[in-house]
Design a protein around this nucleic acid. Structure first.
Lengths: 232, 232
DNA sequence: CAATATATCAATCTAAAGATGTAAGACAAA
DNA sequence: TTTGTCTTACATCTTTAGATTGATATATTG
């Protein structure tokens, strides 16, 4: 398979010159990859990416000077279809999560066997997203944890359930920034009726004003635009 | 390894009786697992889970009557440490995402080889979270997509950047549901000063009232409580 | 049928929010 | 030094929001 395809062009970014050399030699041995550039600086790497338009970038994300994650983000913003694989010394769940969140197509530990890196590159070159099994497990633990709080707060007595259908409509319009007049116009009812509904909503949600009502709605899984708490 | 451990107790929930039988036979052949119950009903399954406290539940999530995802959620809420593996006929990214989000420890396609299911059970029984590689790739595509919009909207001109430090403080307190008096008290400044800040914030964010300001802040990555757009 | 919940509307009043203009002191940059 | 920005503050005025009470019509349900 791989033999028939054009060789994938690879750019290496790693502040550790020794490791950089090692990876370069490793990849050069592979017939399906071609190293088009190497650099120990994230900033230079971004410029090389613009210049050479590689298919894949192997990016060390544990660089003391510039943050590798930030570099990935900048490369993703270029929107040039460059696929970045994060290289890291740590199997830290938070790091893995953040790397995948900003668009890394893979995450490989430096301590992993070189065959693992080549496999990841093969998968990513084929358009897939690849994470080693062990890291996937880590990722999901972190991922599920970030939803646990939310699950709890939504399993607590959710005051939103006490709202009538009409009140939900009104609240929905409130969460879009409408005032009384706007809501009345959209629901084809009088402004005073809207006031009645809004006051009933305040009572049921135990809040004092519309801002608090909107915040309650958004933080407790109100249907329209459900937002999940995932810190960056 | 596995031989020395106590057999893991498994509960099977699948509305398809034939498939249920097949999986049961398959698992019964494995020395490390013991089927403690089977049912074609999600509701009965939840009750069996409470009663028998299995280590693992294999849950079909493509049931017409009751939603398997909802059943998983209810089991997770029990917080009994029961590990649920989702069984599905579809490798739909949204389904996979939702299953993992609500706490499934694995997701296996019914069309996959039985060895794959056993492997998933081994991993999950060992405390890990397991997704077949192909499904992991699917999951991440969906996952990264859900953050793309956010990345764009935050790379677009973000009006929040025009706020001064003090204005950010005021906006922060606004996003917590404070009124003028509350903000003035917390910042040790007069209420009229708060009004000035708030009015300036409105001008800069191009909104008409505090609710719209709060919504703008929350939807554009305001630091305090960053919310990400991931629909359930 | 009677009781209850919901949706509609109005009047009235107070409090809060918002718009606008002005201005003084602090501080940093040109 | 001057210029500009930021923070503070006040006065004034208009509008909106919110609380309260009461009333009617319509389903729904026991």
């Amino acid at each position: 398979m791989r033999e028939f395809k054009r060789r994938s062009r690879v750019l290496l970014i790693d502040d550790n010159a020794d490791h950089l050399r090692g990876v370069k030699e490793l990849i050069t041995l592979e017939s399906s990859y071609e190293v088009v550039g190497t650099t120990t600086s994230a900033n230079i790497g971004i410029n090389l990416a613009k210049k050479y338009r590689p298919d894949i970038i192997l990016m060390d994300i544990n660089m003391p000077e510039k943050d590798g994650l930030q570099a990935i983000q900048e490369i993703e913003k270029l929107d040039m279809g460059i696929r970045v694989i994060a290289l890291s010394g740590y199997d830290d769940a938070d790091l893995i999560f953040r790397a995948m969140k900003i668009g890394a197509k893979g995450y490989v530990l430096k301590t992993m066997a070189s065959a693992q890196l080549i496999y990841a590159m093969d998968e990513v070159a084929a358009g897939k997203i690849y994470l080693p099994t062990a890291l996937t497990s880590r990722f999901f633990e972190y991922f599920q944890n970030s939803f646990k709080e939310e699950a709890k707060s939504s399993s607590e007595e959710n005051l939103l359930t006490y709202l009538t259908a009409r009140e939900e409509e009104v609240l929905d319009l409130l969460t879009q920034g409408n005032n009384y007049k706007g809501i009345a116009g959209k629901l084809f009812i009088s402004e005073t009726t809207v006031k009645t509904h809004v006051n009933n909503i305040f009572q049921k949600l135990q809040v004092n004003d519309r801002t608090q009502a909107v915040l309650y709605a958004l933080n407790n899984g109100f249907a329209n635009r459900r937002l999940s708490k995932i810190a960056v």
